[in-house]
Design a protein around this nucleic acid. Structure first.
Lengths: 129, 129
DNA sequence: GTCTAATGCAACCATTTGGTTGCACGATAA
DNA sequence: TTATCGTGCAACCAAATGGTTGCATTAGAC
């Protein structure tokens, strides 16, 4: 096995990932994403109906999410339908996985010994793509 | 055993997850977390040495990360050593996984048919904990 | 002791953010 | 055609954010 310390694979451009997390870092936005993801595409008015804030606020949030690539919209008649962009969220997920794994490695090095059984489900760490 | 029919498992309190993502949503902070995670614990001065901003700025960011539970610190002599809190990041990761899976489910429902082969590595979706 | 490096704390600043109200505009329904 | 519904756009606002400088404090080093 490669004795090479694996270079602690720096997660792909973290400068690219930060805006992603920033977009998810608002309660209202997270709720929107959750709703769009679980209940399917909705128009702005529909989304605003269930929310605590104004329709315009919702619009702004959707634009932020859109800029982060997490959602996209299409005009349909006189309404605009928003839906979710699965790939982009997967990016964020993979990023966290990589970070998680780096930590495990670093922790392992710090502890200075290798535990017999593989600690947890470190199956994430295999560079699956 | 509760036999609730899967109810599209709403990811645990998203109100709880939002601040986590918010904390990760800054480039400087993300870099800090990355560095602490891959290179092990550092003092504030050490972290500030490699950064583009002031030591005080670094301190603030560390406090934000600390408030989100992503890092923690301990006084050691006259310096304060920060290190990473792996569990908390795992929470974020799991949250994204759940979201991801909800999406797959919803997409499946929308398409209205079940594909023969399991689409991707949807192994995430198994409620592993 | 004295000096100095590492931190903590506070005030301050500019910009961003999350939200609002108000109004104009295009598409549909009657 | 006209009324109305769903949006888009702009101005505006308060609060949060990311950053700074300056100074006080504290613990090692000498």
């Amino acid at each position: 096995m490669s004795r090479k310390p694996r270079r602690a694979v720096k997660p792909a451009g973290f400068a690219h990932a930060a805006p992603l997390f920033a977009a998810l870092g608002d309660e209202t936005r997270l709720a929107l994403v959750l709703r769009l993801g679980s209940a399917g595409p909705h128009s702005i008015a529909q989304l605003a109906a269930g929310a605590a804030v104004t329709r315009q606020a919702i619009t702004k949030h959707l634009q932020v999410l859109g800029a982060a690539g997490l959602v996209r919209s299409a005009r349909l008649g006189r309404e605009r339908i928003w839906n979710v962009e699965a790939d982009r969220l997967d990016e964020a997920r993979r990023f966290l996985e990589q970070m998680s794994c780096q930590w495990d490695e670093a922790l392992g090095r710090l502890k200075g010994f290798v535990e017999k059984g593989n600690r947890t489900d470190a199956s994430f760490c295999k560079p699956r793509n």
